[in-house]
Design a protein around this nucleic acid. Structure first.
Lengths: 132, 132
DNA sequence: GGTAATCTTTCCAGTAACTGGAAGGTCAAG
DNA sequence: CTTGACCTTCCAGTTACTGGAAAGATTACC
């Protein structure tokens, strides 16, 4: 499939997909006319990248995650140790998102925007009373 | 407190804190010697920024979140509608993180790195069999 | 078959969000 | 009163895109 189609299915702009190719993240086939030709597997990987980038992983981290995703020949211990450290990071991100969620819900529920100078939320936000 | 201290407490590099000041996200007091002087409230906000950035929100989105955080005078409906749309985004991110977590756990549990050409994970990854 | 619209290609420049480093001022310790 | 660890501003470089030009390919219509 052409890049426009892959873009629609992955949620990534065509520009970004070409950029990911430039930096060696994903190399699609080429059709006889020179057009890039994406397989469904490529599209899955693009969607995977779209998600991980949106969740705050850097491109280099995404490269690692993609390597895990694509793993076909690396040593088990190696793969597992990277996966485990990524899992810890994911766990942390989920917790932080829950705290942010809690804070915003609290705001929606309790702050009425009626010119009050101090909001009780300020106490609980930014992990001051929720983590570490 | 000085910027180095604020940096330690917020987890943001001093460089980044100065950059956030440049773009108008957070304006600390200045001591008589010209040094930036951060209050605990400033540090909370920096930590808040550190987290939201790490969770994949853009600086402009963080500006909105910070405005919610700081809200003291805006109309309730306005604040609530922004907060609600951010809550949806957070909900989505949590779901995506859970799926990523599930995928990686599956990888750690079932892929042994023993040269196998196709991993069963490929089916379930990237939301193909888990969402939408 | 012609041609206009809509792809696609590469390349180069611009933006967003930092990041590093130079040149110099400030401060606490010995 | 100097040494070292801070801090300041400024300017240049990096990462991760993003927009736009110029040109080739494909499809859609007459």
């Amino acid at each position: 499939m052409n890049i426009g189609n892959a873009s629609d299915k992955s949620g990534l702009p065509a520009k970004t997909i070409r950029y990911y190719e430039d930096i060696g993240l994903l190399k699609p086939d080429r059709a006889d006319n020179g057009y890039r030709d994406y397989s469904m597997s490529d599209v899955h990987k693009l969607r995977f990248l779209q998600r991980s980038r949106g969740l705050g992983f850097s491109v280099e981290e995404c490269r690692q995650l993609l390597a895990l995703y694509e793993d076909k020949s690396r040593a088990s211990a190696d793969v597992k140790s990277i996966a485990k450290s990524k899992l810890q990071e994911i766990e942390r991100k989920i917790i932080e998102l829950r705290e942010l969620q809690h804070t915003l819900k609290h705001l929606v529920a309790h702050c009425h925007g009626d010119q009050r100078p101090d909001c009780p939320i300020l106490e609980s936000i930014s992990g001051t009373a929720g983590s570490s």
